[in-house]
């Protein structure tokens, strides 16, 4: 089972985004998926940590602060497995474009930052389908921090790595933890073949670059393999899309 390291053979396409909290990746994948949808492609969306089968367990564990690095890692892998088996894989086989906000690489960065063995977590996710395109939103730590700390009132316990007892100060803990995650992402770029997007650029510039990568990497097979609603096909050349 080495599917994450070998290209898949499904009709559909898998596009994923990665980056630390506050990198702007969710905004960008949302724009990209709407652009693809506006061209009539069958587009599905899968978010990290969203399996209905696992949700209550995760919520319970977080609320009661029951997680260890190992159980935190395993429950997220369980969530990911459920989304893969029930949603991502069948849709990919049917010919959809699946856009995922965070993917196995989130676990590779985050769980390792929590002290989980690097090889163990890589093996854990080896059943994952290899993405056609993986975007990594590179953000300097201070930029991401100002976005996060400015936008929300309270940092969450696990998000700030409070379980690691780095510091009693939530903000300080968050900085150290996110810094470790950032380093893990940076170290993965080559190994995983990330397309690096400079996330300090304007939203428009980042989106332009993403669309160019999509056209270059999978443009041809989009036209021939991916499911597309014939009705919506007016003039694909000018369907710039993002509403």
């Amino acid at each position: 089972m080495k599917s994450l390291s070998t290209p898949h053979r499904h009709r559909g396409k898998l596009i994923i985004v990665e980056g630390i909290d506050g990198s702007g990746k969710s905004t960008q994948i949302s724009l990209l998926s709407r652009w693809l949808r506006s061209q009539g492609y069958a587009v599905a969306f899968s978010e990290w940590n969203s399996s209905p089968l696992v949700r209550q367990t995760t919520r319970r564990g977080k609320k009661k602060e029951m997680f260890t690095p190992t159980t935190f890692s395993l429950i997220h892998a369980t969530d990911f497995a459920d989304r893969t088996e029930r949603y991502i894989l069948p849709l990919m086989r049917a010919g959809a474009i699946v856009c995922a906000d965070r993917y196995a690489y989130t676990a590779f960065a985050r769980d390792v930052a929590r002290g989980v063995n690097r090889q163990w977590v890589r093996n854990l996710y080896s059943f994952a389908i290899r993405p056609n395109i993986a975007f990594y939103f590179r953000t300097p730590l201070d930029v991401a921090l100002s976005r996060i700390l400015g936008g929300r009132d309270a940092l969450k316990y696990y998000e700030a790595g409070m379980d690691l007892k780095i510091s009693r100060d939530v903000e300080e803990s968050f900085k150290v933890f996110q810094g470790r995650i950032l380093q893990e992402y940076e170290d993965m770029i080559e190994e995983m073949g990330f397309h690096v997007i400079d996330a300090t650029q304007s939203i428009e510039d980042q989106q332009k670059q993403m669309r160019a990568v999509v056209k270059r990497e999978i443009g041809r097979s989009l036209r021939t393999q991916v499911l597309r609603a014939p009705v919506l096909e007016q003039n694909p050349e000018h369907a710039s899309g993002a509403r």
Partner: peptide, 16 residues
């Protein structure tokens, strides 16, 4: 409940 999901759910249970 898919096979990989089930396996990992049990692994989570065991780890806890």
């Amino acid at each position: 409940l898919g096979p990989v999901t089930m396996t990992l759910y049990y692994a989570t249970d065991f780890a806890d």
